[in-house]
Amino acid sequence: MPLTNRGHEILGRLPTARPRTSSGIGCEIVRHEELCVGCGTCAKNCPSGASRRGDTFDVWQLLDAPAGSRRGALGAALRRIARREPAGPIEVPPRVTVYRTIVYDAELCLGCGTCARNCPADAIEALAPKLSMTGDATPTLPTTGGGAATSSATPNAAAPTLAGAASGEVTP
């Protein structure tokens, strides 16, 4: 997979960096499925087919959806009559368009961040790529922000696994 401009830029700064072994170099995509409204914009615009409309629906997306949204209203109604937790995803008949879980294949993802940029529900974040400085595979590079196309997330909230990394500091 050829490097994106961003990838080149990063390598330019950090010549000994090695990208992750997933197919693309680029942002890490974090999907917040409970905020998804199922519009399919990410799938429509995804250049690599990493995001696509699935054939199933994770019922939790209704139950966890924010109150005040349409899914939230449906979820709240479902909650009121539910007897147990949903066992697993359910199959979706073809003409139901928005109640679908978007399938996200990290292997195909280029990290371009288009989905995050365009998501009308702000349900996707694109975080700066994590690169290894040394030979070991554990990503330790701190970031100063959300990467290519995040929304107004606070920096720390956007990088949940950076235990101990202060902003700007490079850990060898």
Binding site: V37, C39, G40, T41, K44, R95, T97, V98, P120, A121
Partner: peptide
């Protein structure tokens, strides 16, 4: 409206 276009499709 978030401009998803589902209405146009259906």
């Amino acid at each position: 409206c978030i401009g998803c276009g589902v209405c146009e499709t259906v």
